[in-house]
Design a protein around this nucleic acid. Structure first.
Lengths: 162, 162
DNA sequence: TCATTTGAGGATATATTATATCCTTAATGA
DNA sequence: TCATTAAGGATATAATATATCCTCAAATGA
């Protein structure tokens, strides 16, 4: 069970967008070149993020993506679920219902105890992701990314954006 | 990102084995019929559990599987990792290293902040699974499974086992 | 007006993984 | 001896992830 690489791409792209100057957009092309990713396929990830209303888009030259909300109001979970979907990572096929000696009505009401534990773990995973905002990435967690590097990166990426 | 159905199968099979009378074994055949699962494929899941040393096996008639440790010493995580492996659910491909304006040495030491958050969530997931023992499944969580059903189930499955 | 750039999304191709079955082998017990 | 078992290799099929190409309509700037 491995997350799609598109999750990683979407997270890094949103991190870049989080520092974008007001009123600017970044195109798929610029984001793809900046991260060394295949443009066409990255586009699919950005479309997912767009469908989740985490970013706004505009067309034409100087068009592209920008965050739809402040980075403090976008969590990791928002982005992960935009790409991976909201479905739980464990699906209960209710195989205990195949128990040949179960009485009538058994398994019709409560979900399986196994499934409940697995879903609880799934929730713990989501809760962690829900607790980290895009703004934390730079503020709390970004200490290994010197500000001047970010500055240079933006200059580069904005230059590519025209 | 969905867990393999083999995880579900392994968990349910271990739950059955947890109540097995001392000295008995249950075969793949009995466990497959009891759960209505394909015998050959379930065998692969049980092999994974066996390789993780969670169960002991013996050959021949009346052979099969039994737990290698008391149910209180086997966690959900043990079983999940036996089938899914211990690899983290998020892999960092270090795409920030493709940043064309990064200085030399950047990205060579610390892991990416994005990856650290994703790994933290992964740990939260594993910690939950680590906190639930096989014995909890019957004791704490098994309230929706009346003991007489379990009793009947074992009679049935043991009868099939010969 | 018109050429260019953009995101959205459909169609398709390939690679990887999950699911499933079949077979052989060696060990076990009746 | 003989049936039964787990282990594991080989193989086949289905589902999914990865990747590319194409068209379309909207936006931009000359």
């Amino acid at each position: 069970m491995i997350l799609k690489s598109q999750v990683e791409w979407a997270l890094h792209c949103c991190a870049i967008l989080a520092g974008l100057p007001e009123g600017r957009y970044l195109s798929t092309k610029a984001l793809a070149e900046f991260h060394g990713l295949p443009k066409e396929y990255l586009s699919k990830a950005l479309q997912s993020v767009s469908q989740a209303s985490l970013v706004e888009t505009t067309l034409g030259p100087s068009g592209g993506y920008r965050l739809a909300r402040p980075p403090s109001e976008i969590t990791f979970l928002d982005i992960v679920e935009a790409v991976e979907g909201k479905a739980r990572t464990f699906t209960c096929n209710n195989i205990r219902a195949n128990n040949p000696c179960r009485p009538a009505g058994f398994c019709d009401t409560k979900p399986c105890a196994v499934a409940r534990v697995m879903w609880q773990a799934d929730e713990a995973w989501r809760n962690t992701l829900r607790g980290v905002r895009l703004s934390d990435l730079v503020e709390t967690l970004g200490e290994e990314v010197p500000p001047d590097i970010w500055k240079g990166s933006y200059e580069w990426v904005l230059k590519r954006a025209g």
